[in-house]
Design a protein around this nucleic acid. Structure first.
Lengths: 236, 236
DNA sequence: GTGCGTATGAAACAGTTGTTTGAATCTTCT
DNA sequence: AGAAGATTCAAACAACTGTTTCATACGCAC
């Protein structure tokens, strides 16, 4: 009765964060990531977190509230650990390479809980009402960084040009395949060889994409393809 | 009791196909595609098909059996309507273009029930034990066609080379983005402009990929990039 | 028509799930 | 210590879901 009136306890109690709330968010993230929102049961999550069944409703209102919390938690971690913005002053090629590297590290969850990217991959294929938030807080800013780099390389002024959009989709698609289709690749036998790092894959994707952009820019463009940022050497 | 002994009635009764079984498979495909296996209820499916609740278990054993049936139905349709093999005698560029066009038509479900590709997209992100079948009957043969074309373009003899695999993943990823991430693209505002056909997108992806392959082949390869199948002109 | 195997129908079953409840325990401030 | 509030706990609730049951209608050879 009291609970119904209180707006879910202290949404971000500072001292508490080592306690039930945090354990719940992390366990939930993992379970949601590999079972999906519907298949994951609050009983499983609570067992994994080692907390009582009622804790979910007490701390997060309901199952969806917990889901949203682990989604936010995951987004914050990705932003902090793998920023997509290259150091100031980088040229366009460098910016694109940096973006691909960051995105691939996010995809493969390198160095951090692997469920972060899984969780968001699910949210894309099977969107809940939380997708708006994910797009606004995570994807749109990142896309802007990529689009700027691609537009510069293509000699386009605006990032809204159709050519820029299509090229960006291509770059992103090449990265996503390693998150969305990994089970297929494994069955196919074409999964990256053991020991292949996110960085290795990113190197290939960046080179592939830059070659494509150079090639298509040359063909269709009216502006010199070597336009923006051409002084940068090849990395590694 | 009798039912338990009989191995599910006439798995493919020829005359019956206009009846309950078919209506069920089609309704199920649609519901499974946009709700997912777990979220879809047999009650919803039966209502959509206009058949009795017990029909699912009678005709398909259980829910999973029905799921498998609509998956097979969908795969057969994709193979028949959008074959990935180019006409015999086509050169490598042409074969790659043809593959991309077919794959994109499958992705966007052009001309046919749109749920086919959705269904398989789900199966990839959230695999059930049916994924083996999908890979063996659908994906592996298709991948072989692509890999052959790419290997020829790169001047590689074997389709198992790491470079070939990576390039194939890139091509496939570019196509998949329009199936897996459409809700995101819509929210982002970068979805293909109204009136854009699968063929338009395929043209871009094929050109992008060919430019990339040309560029990277030139750099790294030891064999002339114009090696296999170079007599073909550019299409359209 | 009669019998027999097949298909459909309405209702009930059994298990699981998210959520709620009210008491018990812990924390914190005076 | 003691009161007040926050948190945890075991148990129950209510709704939903896949599946089963058994009775009924249909199609067809004889």
């Amino acid at each position: 009765m009291v609970r119904a009136l209180r707006a879910i306890p202290t949404a971000d109690a500072p001292g508490d964060e080592a306690g039930t709330r945090l354990r719940l968010v992390e366990a939930a993230g993992e379970v949601f990531a590999d079972q999906g929102f519907r298949d994951a049961t609050v009983r499983d999550i609570c067992a994994a977190a080692g907390v009582n069944l009622a804790a979910v409703n007490y701390h997060f209102g309901d199952k969806r509230g917990l889901y949203l919390a682990s989604l936010r938690y995951s987004m914050a971690a990705a932003r902090d650990l793998h920023p997509v913005e290259a150091p100031a002053g980088s040229d366009a090629r460098e910016r694109l390479r940096h973006f691909v590297h960051a995105l691939m590290r996010r995809m493969l969850g390198e160095g951090r809980p692997a469920w972060h990217a899984k969780l968001m991959a699910r949210e894309m294929v099977d969107p809940t009402d939380a997708l708006d938030t994910v797009v606004d807080e995570m994807i749109r800013p990142a896309f802007g960084v990529l689009a700027r780099a691609v537009a510069d390389l293509l000699g386009e002024r605006s990032t809204r040009s159709e050519r820029v959009k299509l090229a960006c989709h291509g770059v992103i698609g090449q990265c996503m395949v390693y998150r969305h289709c990994m089970p297929v690749l494994r069955l196919l036998g074409t999964q990256p060889a053991a020991g292949t790092t996110a960085s290795d894959l990113a190197d290939h994707i960046a080179a592939f994409s830059l070659a494509a952009i150079d090639g298509t820019a040359r063909r269709g463009a009216t502006t010199p393809r070597v336009g923006a940022g051409s002084h940068g050497g090849r990395r590694r």
